[in-house]
Design a protein around this nucleic acid. Structure first.
Lengths: 172, 172
DNA sequence: TTTAATATGTCAGCCATATTGACATAGTAC
DNA sequence: GTACTATGTCAATATGGCTGACATATTAAA
């Protein structure tokens, strides 16, 4: 019994290239990430185009909805874009009355972003589109598969920034 | 024991909204897809920028490497872009001697795409970048998590086109 | 209290990737 | 011979990103 366990342990942990680490299996993951991401994002895109907005606007809406009173510099980090790129997006959203910014109480240089009622309504519509796709997938695969899905995705995240992502996603 | 199993089975399969289907868990998936995709693609981007090429060129290189003698119309379907968009990418790659097209033997209208030695070398470099990230994630999470990762991603793919994707990914 | 650093905003120009529409050419199929 | 298909190209446009330069207000530090 102990022998079997040791052999198993050896095979899983120390074998040079277990079956799931071969190039074929890595390509599965790469390709599924590409097609899964493509089809997950097509839903909200269709909603936003009706408002003359694009994917960039959606990402900003999403994170402002997720973290109300998010400050601009934190949003920049989440989006990994420059402030000039964000400016166009935020100006559009503010012009359409979707987003408002308020001056920080502690630090008056900071701008805290939040959604108006209209912004929240639009975010909800795009979330419903994402939700339909994700819920269908979760239901089809079950809780255990979903757990593996999360684990691998989190492990794909750059270790340098993983702490921040964990804090956001897992809600700390 | 049978009672416990039944209760568990009930909870997993038939409850109106099991824990893993709540909005919170759906948002986990959405956010992890965003950050995972972002960091998975940053590796190859860095390789390509050295050759004056971008992500669009990478996708074409990838699929031509994956399916040698792929015809243009099939590549268009995989990429979900227009032929005008693909033209720029393929012209760049052909001008740099990365890709060659040959006239179909059966149907002489078709163009079969394949990589030159230089193209294969560049594709390999970008694949190594993807591989490093994906392998690290797979190793950290184990075979069972990887299985769930694949299942959920495949379920995210639009059912209408899923057959083609399965054929490509699973190599039929 | 000056001085330096930070948070934000804006202008201008540029690049990469994609779109639609129109048109051309060669080859296949009926 | 006519219609359809596969591919290629030109032109105009939209989106989302970039760098560099500069401005303003506020906080922090010397």
């Amino acid at each position: 019994m102990a022998d079997i366990l040791n052999i198993t342990s050896y095979a899983v942990s120390y074998q040079a290239s277990p079956l799931f680490l071969r190039d074929v299996e890595l390509r599965h993951g790469i390709e599924l990430m590409y097609f899964g991401y493509r089809d997950l994002t097509s839903g909200p895109d269709a909603v936003l185009v009706q408002h003359g907005l694009g994917r960039a606007h959606h990402r900003a809406l999403y994170f402002i909805a997720r973290k109300p009173d998010l400050i601009v510099s934190d949003l920049l980090k989440l989006l990994s874009i420059t402030k000039q790129s964000l400016a166009r997006v935020l100006n559009d959203l503010q012009a359409q009355g979707m987003v408002v910014s308020t001056i920080g109480t502690g630090d008056r240089r900071q701008r805290h972003l939040s959604l108006t009622e209209a912004g929240a309504a639009l975010e909800l519509k795009t979330f419903e589109a994402l939700k339909a796709t994700m819920q269908r997938a979760y239901s089809a695969c079950g809780a255990q598969a979903v757990s593996g899905f999360w684990q691998v995705l989190m492990a794909l995240v750059d270790p340098a920034g993983r702490g921040d992502i964990e804090a956001l996603v897992m809600g700390k």
